[in-house]
């Protein structure tokens, strides 16, 4: 979000910078840099995106639709949606709680907690998956107890949800911590002095102030939850129709040389990503606007 704001505010600034003879570069430099950037953009971002859709429709509409309504594909869609539907609300609660604790209270080990929140970002998703296998798998710490009680976590839906929650954990907290720290405690203090109870302070004062940041975090969490491959792949066991998410399903189809079907399912994920981007942009715009208001009222 901070990036978004700089971009929005940067607009005028860049124009002024550009129009001054003293600070503007020669056209040659300008166009060379532009050309390099555009080439990169086309080769690495635009072409793959187009390729996904071209390949998906290569064998026509019918093959496309067939690939999507295949029972295994439908089950993968369902599981992906379920993983997202569980991990987003969970991380919403964790993220807000963690950010609240870090931004509004002073306690020992705060820096350590902030570092810990970043762990899922820094650790490879495969390791994240393996950790859960080691804890809950048949040979893991709780393995025998889980088997005795007939609870399946690894190679089952709970494992996939767990892995997804783990890898998406930092998104909301990371988004909210700097925002809440910047806002400080004064408005909350004002509310308490005016007689508001804890939940009233949160609901009427804190939440409205962080809503755009929160929304942004939710969108990122959702995007990652639907697209996660590594961690989920390790704990899933790839049981068709049962423990395959959309990304895993794409891999299986591809490995079986069903390219059109693989790209058809992939196009669905790509479409989700595009929709996410549009929503994200809109939220960023709103956030930048409310940020500007805040700046004005602070000055």
């Amino acid at each position: 979000m901070a990036g978004a704001t700089t971009m929005h505010l940067g607009g005028n600034h860049a124009a002024r910078f550009e129009n001054k003879a003293a600070t503007s570069e020669t056209p040659l430099v300008k166009w060379t840099i532009l050309a390099i950037a555009l080439t990169f953009f086309t080769v690495f971002l635009l072409m793959p995106l187009i390729a996904v859709f071209v390949e998906a429709f290569r064998k026509g509409w019918e093959t496309y639709v067939t690939a999507l309504v295949d029972p295994d594909a439908l089950s993968a869609i369902k599981l992906t949606l379920l993983a997202a539907a569980v991990s987003v609300p969970l991380n919403l609660v964790f993220g807000v709680a963690a950010a609240w604790a870090i931004a509004k209270f002073e306690f020992r080990g705060k820096q350590f907690l902030i570092t810990l929140i970043d762990l899922p970002f820094s650790v490879s998703p495969v390791i994240a998956g393996l950790v859960f296998v080691l804890i809950f798998g048949a040979q893991g710490w709780f393995g025998s107890w889980l088997i005795d009680n007939d609870i399946k976590i690894i190679f089952a839906v709970p494992g996939i949800v767990l892995a997804t929650v783990f890898v998406t954990f930092p998104f909301i907290a990371r988004e909210l911590i700097p925002l809440m720290q910047a806002q400080g405690k004064e408005e909350e203090e004002a509310a308490v002095v005016l007689g508001a109870k804890g939940w009233q302070v949160f609901w009427y004062v804190t939440l409205p102030n962080i809503k755009w940041g929160l929304m942004y975090g939710v969108i990122l969490t959702n995007a990652r939850a639907m697209g996660e491959f590594g961690a989920v792949s390790v704990v899933s066991g790839h049981i068709r129709g049962q423990t395959n998410t959309l990304p895993l399903h794409v891999e299986i189809l591809y490995n079986e040389y069903m390219f059109s079907a693989a790209f058809a399912v992939a196009s669905l994920l790509a479409l989700l990503a595009l929709v996410t981007l549009v929503i994200k942009n809109w939220v960023e715009h709103q956030a930048a606007r409310s940020y500007r208001d805040t700046q004005e009222s602070a000055s």
Partner: peptide, 19 residues
């Protein structure tokens, strides 16, 4: 608790609810 003290408090930077 602050809530029950019935004090009015005015902050240096106003602390008005922005939204």
């Amino acid at each position: 608790h602050v809530r029950e003290r019935q004090v009015g408090f005015v902050f240096q930077h106003y602390a008005l609810f922005k939204h």
